[in-house]
Simulated scan of single mutants.
Amino acid sequence: MSNSKGKKPDDIEALIADFQRSGMHELHVRAADFEIYLSADPAAPGLDAQVIATPATSSPKAEPQRPAAAASHPPVEAAANSTVSEAPAGAIIVSAPYLGTFYRSPKPGSPVYVDVGSVVTAESELCLVEVMKLFTAVRADVAGIVHAILATDGQMVEADQPLFIIVPA
């Protein structure tokens, strides 16, 4: 990576990808005015009580910063009580693409993408996962009905963590 003043989003994304492939549980990098803390443990204290710390400036393609879970949607009852082992036969599990923050809506105050019982197509967006101010839409990839939501808004999720259970239609 280049010096801390020349950090590029691609450099940071590469660092995150390397961390995810490495099998490491924590990574803390500090160089001049840049600091990042990555952890595979969603309960890790992080920097200033955050699991992932970001540089002071955001990348040009970043979306507006979302506030923490304070502005989140109320948890879905099925999310707290469902587990992958309780999924109906033939159900599809949609997992997180990488370590990041799970968001149920496109921006604070907006309606959620889906609720339990929502009918979805393969192209339907279910949520966003954000890391380092980069937001990735997670799609259903199958037509069906949302059976359960397994994460809460604003929660840190790990790579491959189950997020939704969808019963194909």
Rank of each mutant, 00 (worst) to 15 (best):
A62N: 06
A62W: 04
F135I: 08
Y103R: 12
S85M: 02
V157K: 00
S124K: 02
V131N: 05
F102P: 01
A62M: 08
L15C: 10
Q65K: 14
S95H: 10
S85Q: 14
L134V: 15
S110F: 15
G100Y: 02
A40Q: 14
D160M: 11
A62I: 07
T83P: 02
G144W: 04
I12R: 03
A91H: 03
Y103Q: 05
P64M: 12
S59N: 11
I165G: 04
M156D: 05
P162I: 11
R139T: 08
L38W: 03
V120K: 05
K107G: 01
F19C: 04
T136I: 10
I166G: 01
G6N: 15
P42S: 09
I166L: 06
I165E: 04
E26C: 04
P162S: 13
A80E: 13
P106W: 03
G46V: 10
F34A: 00
P162T: 12
A49K: 14
G109N: 10
L134W: 06
V114P: 05
G46T: 12
P74W: 13
L126M: 10
E123Y: 02
G154S: 08
P75S: 10
T54M: 12
V129M: 06
I36C: 05
A89N: 04
V51A: 07
I165S: 01
I145L: 06
A80V: 13
Q155E: 13
P88A: 15
H73D: 09
A79K: 02
E125I: 15
N3K: 07
A70P: 00
H25I: 06
E123I: 06
P9I: 06
T57C: 08
A87Q: 04
V131S: 08
G23F: 12
G90Y: 10
A79R: 04
Y37A: 12
Q161D: 04
F19L: 03
P64V: 07
A137W: 00
V29N: 00
S4A: 15
I93E: 07
P45C: 03
A79V: 03
R66H: 13
M1L: 14
V112T: 10
A96H: 05
L128D: 00
T152M: 11
S58K: 10
P55W: 03
V76G: 04
A169F: 08
A68P: 04
E123P: 00
A62G: 10
Y103G: 06
S110Y: 13
G46E: 09
P67Y: 11
A69D: 01
A68D: 12
D11Y: 13
A80K: 12
D10F: 13
H73S: 11
L15V: 02
G100E: 03
D11C: 06
L99Y: 05
H25W: 01
D160F: 11
G90R: 02
T152A: 14
E86V: 03
L27F: 07
S22C: 10
N3L: 14
P60A: 13
A143R: 07
A159I: 05
N3H: 14
A79Y: 00
G109D: 08
A17K: 15
P42T: 06
G46F: 14
S39K: 09
P45G: 03
L15Q: 02
V116M: 05
V114N: 06
R139H: 07
T101L: 06
M24R: 13
V29T: 02
D41M: 02
V129S: 03
Y98A: 11
I36T: 03
L47C: 05
S72P: 00
A87W: 04
T54P: 00
K61E: 12
